[in-house]
Design a protein around this nucleic acid. Sequence first.
RNA 1: GCGGGAGUAGCUCAGUGGUAGAGCAUCAGUUUCCCAAACUGAAGGCCGCGGGUUCGAUACCCGUUUCCCGCUCCA
Length: 513
Amino acid sequence: MSKENKVTDLQDIISHAKEYGFVFPSSEIYDGLGAVYDYGQYGVELKKNIQEYWWKSMVQLHENIVGLDAAIFMHPKTWKASGHVDAFNDPLIDNKDSKKRYRADVLIEEAMTKIEDKITKEVDKAEKKFGETFDKAMFLQTNPNVLRNKEKVATIEARFKKALEDSNMDELKQIIVDLEIVCPISGTRNWTEVRQFNLMFSTQVGAIADESETIYLRPETAQGIFVNFLNVLNTSRQRIPFGIAQVGKAFRNEVVARQFIFRTREFEQMEMQFFVRPGTEMEWFEKWKETRMAWHKSLGFAEADLKLHKHIKLAFYANAAVDIEYNFPFGFKEIEGIHSRTNHDLTQHQNMSGKKLQYFDHELNESYVPYVVETSIGLNRTILAVLSNSYKVEKLEDGTERTVLNFPPFLAPIKAAILPLVKKDGLPEKAREIMNELKFDHLCFYDEKDSIGKRYRRQDALGTPFCITVDHDTLTDNKVTIRDRDTMKQERVDISELRRIVGEKVDWRKAVK
RNA sequence: GCGGGAGUAGCUCAGUGGUAGAGCAUCAGUUUCCCAAACUGAAGGCCGCGGGUUCGAUACCCGUUUCCCGCUCCA
């Protein structure tokens, strides 16, 4: 856990993850696909274990939280209601000198405002000049400067509207050029082309490509929960406050997908939407903030590597938001967001669908649209955090080094390696016996190749918490040694006790406490 | 998308205008050992891809692609 051993280079983690079968670049034999990754034989186990731990922590341990698995495809109206169709579509332009990016539509709107300001100034000037006798309406209709500017604005507005309607990026660029808009930072007109950024992936359902059949890959899993609110409410016998949890893939066509598996266009979210009585949302927001922070600590993250980041600028639907950030090799970055989403989503869906998404509160004797507190964690980010946190290159007393992934045992892909000290004298057979028993409880790994030391180190690099070694004495006393990954200490135990001992050591219960 | 850096064996990296090397890892064997032991042998590369210069390019030039870093973006 010491900071000295903490590797700050992401590259080391990427290499290790690839070399030991955790994460591979997607379709690598074809040169890979940008920012897409596949999980290898140990990565998939780690991922599954994290996901399962989250699920148990949220669903199994909370009587008032139930699970859900909604489809990735959803009715297109879902994304109109949620605001994604409008908010996830921006025409963007870069200034090559200042390297700043702007929304093209905002730049044009600002330029139009400037021209309108000129008109206002002209009017003010005239008003001062003529005093009481000033006829504003007449002035606006006759003053040549005003008329010229008014026409200019009208022309631009017409072009601008049409360009937006036609999604004509070239025309937007041309308007920016014609208006001689300069970058506020660099002061230059050295612009790139305007590009439309569609943050949602779309595809067609049905064999005939028709506009009405364009559907989106969900950009967040939350909406699958909101549209099922009534279904769950009617069938789960839950009463407010209660939550719906879901793990699933979401897709965002990010402008920049970077930093290994931290930001990818295809990613997996673990979300829980908690429905509460209006007015109580801040209490629940605080409660979930603490609960989720404790969960992250249970993954073995040091307190110093976790941080709460409060949003100052809130999304339009939220009335409170906080991120849980982890100290990645590239700095503190968000792993999980906790948002008080008010009744925005349900209200939007209620309006769009015409279905009443309300809850009748017997205590208050009234119906209302519940408020929502959301906890939304990125599974891939959590994997990266666990990998970063676990990856250590340790200097041993004898001067050698060892690379170890000190995962919490309940997250480790392989729980135990079964190793005969030598490959003869009946030791492999005895080890196989143990393997055949333990494999029903845990993912185990049998290895008889190379020296025992090398095999220990190999398991260290995979993060296997326990190595069970069969030696010559085992044949007579029925005892084996259990070697601890972190302390490298060995303990001699009875074979009959193995199931219990290993079972206790890798029990997730210990993490929850 | 802009700028910078880098792509040579599974990993870490050498290398030279004359068609490639080390260490580790992998596989087979010998050794039978409690913390990356030794030995023998094997396999593994269109030197990221395409084009240009050249008698000849892994090397020099251009383009492209992928990754990393910074900016940007981030419901």
